[in-house]
Design a protein around this nucleic acid. Sequence first.
DNA 1: GGAAGTATGTGACTAAGTCACAAAGCCGGA
DNA 2: TCCGGCTTTGTGACTTAGTCACATACTTCC
Lengths: 222, 222
Amino acid sequence: MSQEAEWIDQFAGLKRLPPDVVDILMRNSAVVSLPSGSRIYGPGQAPKSYLLLLDGSVRVQQISETGREIVLYRVSAGESCALTTACLMGYEDYPAEAIAETDIHAVAIPRTTFEELIARSHEFRRFVFTAFSTRVTNLFRIIEEIAFSRMDIRLAHKILELSHGADDVTSTQQQIASELGTAREVVSRIFAEFQRRGWLAVTRGHIKINNRPALERLASEH
Amino acid sequence: MSQEAEWIDQFAGLKRLPPDVVDILMRNSAVVSLPSGSRIYGPGQAPKSYLLLLDGSVRVQQISETGREIVLYRVSAGESCALTTACLMGYEDYPAEAIAETDIHAVAIPRTTFEELIARSHEFRRFVFTAFSTRVTNLFRIIEEIAFSRMDIRLAHKILELSHGADDVTSTQQQIASELGTAREVVSRIFAEFQRRGWLAVTRGHIKINNRPALERLASEH
DNA sequence: GGAAGTATGTGACTAAGTCACAAAGCCGGA
DNA sequence: TCCGGCTTTGTGACTTAGTCACATACTTCC
């Protein structure tokens, strides 16, 4: 129980749950582990429980018939698979694919327990709906980006995002292309231009940022 | 009250609500009317209540800085503004814009009542989450289309959708371009090609379908 | 009938995606 | 250590999509 009391602290939105609700949550949830690379949900693999991620990272993406991919969002430690849950509750098939990017630990809440928590607790509702709206807002942003933004701007943005403030990014061009839903050749050509300008140094599987302000300036153009 | 009892029948998912829940719903909701063209939500104009559309049609769209638009989805009579509501409950700003396409009548449920209904009724939760997952599924489909589909295929698809089974569509090329998030010139050129093939006849503000099977064949190429 | 406003067509150009293939880097085994 | 196979990256040639500028055509209404 003390171990369980620990995990709940990872979720800011759940800290204020009343004790009886915490009790229901604890009794009916389980901590699960999955190895890196496992497919958590996908078409024909409907979600069965609400997941709260304790550790690791989950990538949610769509794959086209021609094999091109686009990353819709990531679920990180301390977050929940909010949209999946909507599909779970609406009994709809989940049309995207969720892949564990690292080994992960998560709390699994069965559908019936999830419903009970929703019914009982204002705080839990708030937690769930806030997660929803964050994801939906983010999806809207992605649609806007794909439809209206230039690829060089999106790429500058993505490199800065992947760098986490450091100057080195370890990723292949194909992986970055998949993040953005474009073709590898396009990434290669834009990188060539960025290198020509002295903003980056690109080697196999690796990008070094040499002029962060320039990238930030370009990224902010949208 | 009999008038109110009528509107609830328009929503298949609400028919089985228990009487006490119906009572709460009736006491705390109001039927509102808005003229065609009114902006219902938008950035800086946060939703204040959950809307159930009785009559008319609402277009939810995004507008880029350069003025290009894209339609995300429509809310029709008998449906709810599900995504908006998530933002309402999550207290996040709604990043898209909802416009009444026709004069509309809708039932407005205040946030606090909405929460009470969610807490009390399994059927109401089911109704809300089903609407939610339908919208999210649809957003995923749009992202896939924008990112991976050819414009001629998307355009064929859209014309068939706008035709509602008839052979005439009344719409300007600019309106169709906005639906698809592309530029008017692109629509004009693809129409030129469709006309060359004898599939369409295009006049000012009007499209006549002359070869529906051909359009369907192209649209189904996905 | 003409003016103003709206809608459509088109050329020239840039950006992005596709296809085919070459070249370079990496890794493991002989 | 060197070689072969695999992965990653680069590039030319081409198609598709979006942008900009402007011409032309249709409508409406005075």
